[in-house]
């Protein structure tokens, strides 16, 4: 996400296309496109954590669940404006992210990955235990539901705002601190970066993004927050999306979001496997193949293209 003329131009073009897209799409496809926006937000959040501060999380589905339930419950109990519930989801997940970020300070690498995975597994179990407030396995139904067009507008507006916020945050001092931590914690500490503050901050911001995504995710399922929707698979999908995206490129995150948002739906129509369960076969196979072919993700692929382009004039010289 480096500010450059080309980058700015592509961002503007992407924005324009997204703004005009709903007029060309059917309601069903608007819903799908909105879903891509939801994944975009969640993957962007995970990218801030993993790509910039070097901490891994396989538990972002948990924050999405918390965000989603926040929206559904506030709407059910107080008929709160949905946009307001999204802001609430953002705030709650930010705070919870900070709380989770604290123990994460002591863990690294695989241990952190598995601890966050534990979160992804545990959180969807809580509604089953505390069923009076959280609705048990039946879930929570929000008082209001939204149209696909509303959802499209909301998710991509939120995506745009959050993208700009991320850009502002990562551009300056905080971004430098994150990157320093990612590259070497010891070197970062010795050059005066206060590790605990920045590492927990990264967790908080990242969780807040996931919270907004979760809130929109629930609105996308007719305002129905259900434990099943937030299973382990969702966390894994976000992780897959982030890996497909690669690190630090808007186009990468878009590609990652499109990948996990659209591919399961598209692979449903692949005639080869036929039955209803064929979609997992196709999706799993493509995930594996993409990683075999693009181990650095889409961003790595773009970087390689850029290098090739940069190298060509040099080799043309006599």
């Amino acid at each position: 996400m480096k500010p450059s003329a080309v980058g700015l131009a592509t961002t503007v073009v992407a924005g324009a296309v997204l703004a005009l897209l709903p007029f060309a799409l059917s309601s069903y496809h608007q819903g799908l496109a909105a879903q891509v926006g939801v994944y975009f937000i969640a993957i962007l959040g995970l990218n801030i954590l993993t790509g910039y501060s070097g901490q891994i999380s396989i538990g972002h589905g948990a924050f999405m669940a918390i965000g989603g339930y926040t929206t559904a419950i506030m709407s059910r109990d107080h008929r709160t404006n949905l946009i307001l519930t999204m802001l609430m989801a953002l705030a709650i997940c930010f705070v919870l992210g900070l709380v989770v970020g604290l123990p994460a300070l002591r863990l690294s690498g695989v241990y952190l990955a598995l601890a966050t995975f534990a979160l992804a597994v545990s959180v969807p179990q809580l509604p089953l235990k505390f069923s009076t407030f959280l609705g048990g396995s039946n879930g929570v139904q929000s008082a209001e539901t939204v149209t696909h067009r509303w959802l499209y507008g909301a998710s991509w507006t939120a995506a745009a705002i959050l993208f700009v916020l991320a850009w502002l945050l990562l551009r300056g001092r905080t971004g430098r601190a994150f990157r320093a931590i990612r590259d070497s914690e010891i070197a970062a500490t010795s050059s005066g970066v206060r590790l605990p503050i920045y590492k927990t901050l990264a967790f908080g911001v990242s969780a807040a993004y996931a919270g907004v995504a979760g809130s929109l995710y629930v609105l996308g399922t007719n305002g129905f927050a259900q434990p099943n929707e937030f299973g382990v698979l969702l966390s894994l999908q976000i992780l897959v999306g982030a890996a497909v995206a690669g690190l630090g490129s808007l186009w990468g995150v878009l590609a990652g979001a499109a990948f996990v948002g659209l591919l399961p739906t598209i692979s449903k129509d692949v005639p080869l496997v036929g039955s209803a369960h064929g979609q997992d076969v196709v999706f799993g196979l493509i995930v594996v193949l993409v990683m075999l072919l693009l181990p650095q993700g889409f961003a790595g692929f773009l970087a390689r293209l850029a290098r090739l382009r940069a190298a060509r004039p040099a080799s043309d010289r006599p």
Binding site: A113, L236, L239, V240, D280, F283, G284, L285, V287, M291
Partner: peptide, 10 residues
């Protein structure tokens, strides 16, 4: 790791 996740689904 992502390849193993893909294998999980596959």
């Amino acid at each position: 790791v992502i390849v193993t996740v893909g294998l999980f689904i596959l």
